[in-house]
Design a protein around this nucleic acid. Structure first.
Length: 283
DNA sequence: CTTACGGCCTGGGTGC
DNA sequence: TGCACCCAGGCCGTAA
């Protein structure tokens, strides 16, 4: 599932080949995950890709209109659960569930494949930037310790829910929240407001450490994830709790447990991550 | 306002 | 062999 490290890996791969390329044409398959398919078909051809960025879990291609007058725009791609965006030669075999083809001026194609179509593609003009990006929280890698503490302190929701909430931090998903909480030795059901300062500092360090290492290993390939060249990541080999229910904790040997928190399955070590002793928490 | 929860989208994997 | 069901992430509506 593409979260921050996977999207960052894809962005870096595309950044190596896309800037300067011009989009010649667009072909679309199913379009129910595209905000405005007609706009994609009409506005993309002729534009030049200036920059490739990541914003939270969004991949952002900054485009420059060819005919001076038109305003610049950005193409946003959210990979959802099963989205893949790859560069390939035009003759390459078309993977099932490929729904967007961008023909580039060097003969290559940029293709978007998404089995479940939980992803999203939209065009951002300058005016709508705030509408999409405005509600998003801090980038977990850019946030200072003070900013991180400020975003979580006083919040009464469970820490697992807070880490997953894109309005609080942008880019964390289920894998990296579980891995970060394990590293920080914090139970997923703890309430944000109940965390001590040093626990929050530990969590900040853990989040940064986990994400940085995951980026270094090019993300986690646990279902369909591949990077922009079709290569899997390696961080799934370093998972300490995610999808390790019943296996031994790497730190203490206790069996990893799984519970539902914030509607998401949450993996943790019952010994390293002590349960809060509130009324209805069950370790 | 904040939080919790259920439902919806889709289709591959699992287990009977 | 088939088939019902679970589950994933994000989002939205509703309730407390």
């Amino acid at each position: 599932m593409p979260e921050l490290p996977e999207v960052e890996t894809v962005a870096r791969g595309l950044r190596a080949v896309l800037p300067g390329r011009r989009i010649l044409g667009v072909r679309l398959g199913k379009t129910d995950f595209i905000d405005d398919p007609a706009a994609i078909e009409q506005q993309l051809p002729g534009t030049r890709i200036n920059e490739v960025r990541r914003h939270g879990k969004f991949l952002v291609l900054d485009l420059e209109a060819s005919n001076g007058g038109a305003r610049d725009l950005s193409l946003l791609v959210h990979l959802g659960m099963t989205g893949q965006i790859v560069i390939c030669p035009p003759g390459a075999r078309i993977a099932p569930h490929t729904h967007v083809f961008l023909v580039l001026d060097d003969g290559q194609e940029l293709r978007y494949t998404d089995i479940r179509r939980f992803g999203r593609i939209c065009i951002l003009a300058d005016g709508s930037r705030e509408e999409v990006f405005g509600p998003l929280g801090l980038d977990p890698l850019e946030a200072t310790e003070a900013e991180f503490l400020g975003a979580l302190h006083g919040r009464r929701a469970r820490i697992k829910a807070l880490l997953l909430d894109q309005h609080v931090l942008r880019g964390m998903g289920n894998i990296y929240t579980d891995e970060s909480l394990w590293r920080a030795r914090i139970h997923p059901m703890r309430l944000g407001a109940r965390l001590k300062c040093d626990e929050l500092r530990r969590l900040h360090r853990a989040v940064r450490g986990v994400l940085t290492e995951a980026i270094r290993l090019r993300g986690s390939s646990i279902s369909d994830y591949v990077d922009s060249h079709g290569q899997p990541g390696e961080f799934q080999r370093r998972h300490r709790v995610y999808q390790r229910e019943g296996k031994k904790c790497f730190r203490c040997g206790a069996p990893i447990r799984r519970v539902i928190v914030a509607g998401r399955s949450s993996h943790f070590c019952p010994r390293c991550q002590p349960a809060p002793r509130s009324h209805h928490s069950r370790q």
